[in-house]
């Protein structure tokens, strides 16, 4: 257990250092999100319907997530994978990737929300509940997407494969997050949302445990 935590910490630190050194990856991701937000602004100009505002925001998040996570396992070359194979446990790898992707996506979603509100207005009444929805939703997107990215990297690894494998799988989480954030936008009483929050947390927990169990099988080859 202690060993796994230590390895995860080291791998996580490596990911962050790598990302900061290769600035173009992070920058291109930010530019990607910024571009979609701006395209949405130019095509809609003014969103009157709150539900459309909400759905559009989640679609932006989904595409940014798929785009950023698709490269998770690609950047690791064959020889580096072999090196990991002898050095660390597979669980540490998947844990560090998930943690890193979650953190990255939280930063991106934060920036996307700010930019999105700036150009298209912000109808959210209960901002804290909305943030809870975004955090839970982002975790719910990252865990299965990281797993699918690992699967796609074993296959021919084209971006289309990543999309078709992941889109139908993340629909439950996406629908639930949209419903939860809609409650936040309408400013309903928080007790209404407890059901959605619990469902999201349990969904995330199930997928998380599943990915920890399955990744070691995926890894050895």
């Amino acid at each position: 257990m202690k060993q796994i935590l230590a390895e995860t910490g080291n791998l996580l630190w490596k990911e962050i250092k790598l990302e900061l050194r290769l600035k173009y990856a992070l920058n291109s991701l930010l530019l990607f999100t910024g571009s979609i937000v701006f395209i949405c602004y130019l095509t809609f100009i003014n969103i009157i319907d709150k539900h459309t505002w909400n759905t559009l925001f989640w679609i932006i998040l989904l595409f940014s997530a798929v785009n950023s996570i698709a490269k998770t396992f690609v950047q690791e070359g064959e020889s580096r994978n072999l090196y990991y194979y002898f050095q660390v446990k597979p669980i540490s790898i998947i844990l560090s990737k998930q943690l890193y992707n979650t953190a990255l996506l939280l930063v991106i979603s934060c920036l996307a929300l700010i930019l999105y509100s700036l150009v298209l207005g912000n109808p959210v009444e209960d901002i804290i509940l909305f943030c809870v929805a975004v955090i839970l939703g982002v975790i719910g997107l990252t865990i299965p997407l990281t797993m699918v990215s690992a699967i796609a990297s074993k296959a021919s690894n084209n971006p289309t494969l990543m999309a078709i494998l992941s889109f139908p799988i993340v629909i439950p989480v996406l629908m639930m997050s949209i419903k939860l954030s809609k409650i936040a936008i309408d400013g309903l009483d928080r007790s209404v949302a407890s059901d959605e929050i619990l469902t999201l947390i349990s969904l995330n927990a199930i997928v998380f445990v599943l990915s920890l169990i399955l990744y070691p099988y995926l890894w050895k080859s």
């Binding site: 299965p144 799988i169 599943l210 399955l214 995926l218």
Partner: peptide, 25 residues
């Protein structure tokens, strides 16, 4: 071998996603 292993892993995830769909939507 890779095909069998990778698709088995996806199969497990797919079934759980199916269960989630049947309960949530």
């Amino acid at each position: 071998m890779t095909k069998a292993r990778v698709s088995s892993v996806y199969n497990v995830i797919a079934f759980f996603a199916l269960i989630a769909l049947l309960f949530i939507l």
